[in-house]
């Protein structure tokens, strides 16, 4: 791959999303254009109700747009079956949620293994990969712990290990520090920087401009419209 050519891995063009509630139609996204290059650390900044969650769902292939084009890793995401959307999520997207979303009855190891299971990876490889990922987030000594035996920061690191397990195209983080105190939040951000430095593409959805400032690029979303945002017009 040539170094100077733009390597766009995510391209959105005129994405709209309407929700029909009874007789009323609400236009949540009103024509989003967005391009993300490989290795970018992008923050999508917006207040609640701005449509940022809907945008995240569409980026994460959890939802499909009403109209517009969405291309991920060169593939057009449209009219896919539930099953193939699931496969795309499995391979392309590493989700990191505000509330960690770990299975409470399964160990850290089992949680990290989960996406690999759904990818039908052979057992030996799967175990190795899960171990590697937990080692990467410095939880090698906590693999058999249940989520409730871990601190919030550790739980989020398990979730990050899980998101990295499938080596996805994009890490998609939704308010990743929202449930953490400032210090642990900062540690998670450090980890994000580290991953980004390794060339990992990160898209982070947040309402917090301080958190967003960690990103190398920020776009703002307001009332369903997106704008390339400088920091000063907060």
């Amino acid at each position: 791959m040539s170094e100077n050519k733009k390597d766009v891995i995510l391209r959105m063009k005129g994405i709209t999303k309407d929700y029909v509630m009874g007789a009323e139609v609400s236009h949540v996204l009103k024509g989003i254009d967005l391009e993300v290059e490989r290795g970018e650390f992008l923050a999508v900044l917006g207040p609640s109700g701005s449509g940022k969650s809907t945008l995240m769902n569409i980026i994460g292939c959890l939802d499909v747009p009403t109209s517009g084009e969405y291309e991920l890793s060169g593939k057009t995401i449209a009219h896919q079956s539930e099953a193939s959307l699931a496969q795309i999520r499995n391979k392309e997207i590493g989700f990191i949620f505000q509330s960690f979303q770990l299975l409470q009855r399964q160990s850290a190891f089992d949680n990290v293994e989960l996406p690999l299971l759904y990818a039908n990876m052979p057992e030996r490889e799967r175990r190795q990969r899960a171990r590697d990922m937990l080692t990467k987030v410095q939880l090698a000594d906590r693999m058999d712990y249940l989520p409730n035996q871990l601190s919030g920061g550790q739980q989020q690191r398990v979730a990050i290990a899980r998101a990295l397990a499938m080596n996805p195209t994009i890490l998609l983080a939704d308010e990743p520090t929202g449930a953490l105190d400032q210090k642990t939040g900062a540690q998670v951000m450090d980890l994000f920087h580290e991953l980004n430095n390794e060339g990992r593409t990160i898209i982070m959805i947040t309402h917090d401009s301080k958190i967003a400032s960690h990103a190398s690029r920020i776009v703002r979303i307001l009332d369903g419209n997106i704008s390339e945002g400088a920091l000063e017009d907060a």
Binding site: G60, A86, Y118
Partner: peptide
């Protein structure tokens, strides 16, 4: 429900 949602997000197909 939440667990099912998470499994789906992580790539579990409906048939699974």
């Amino acid at each position: 429900t939440k667990e099912i949602g998470l499994r789906k997000a992580l790539g579990a197909e409906p048939s699974r």
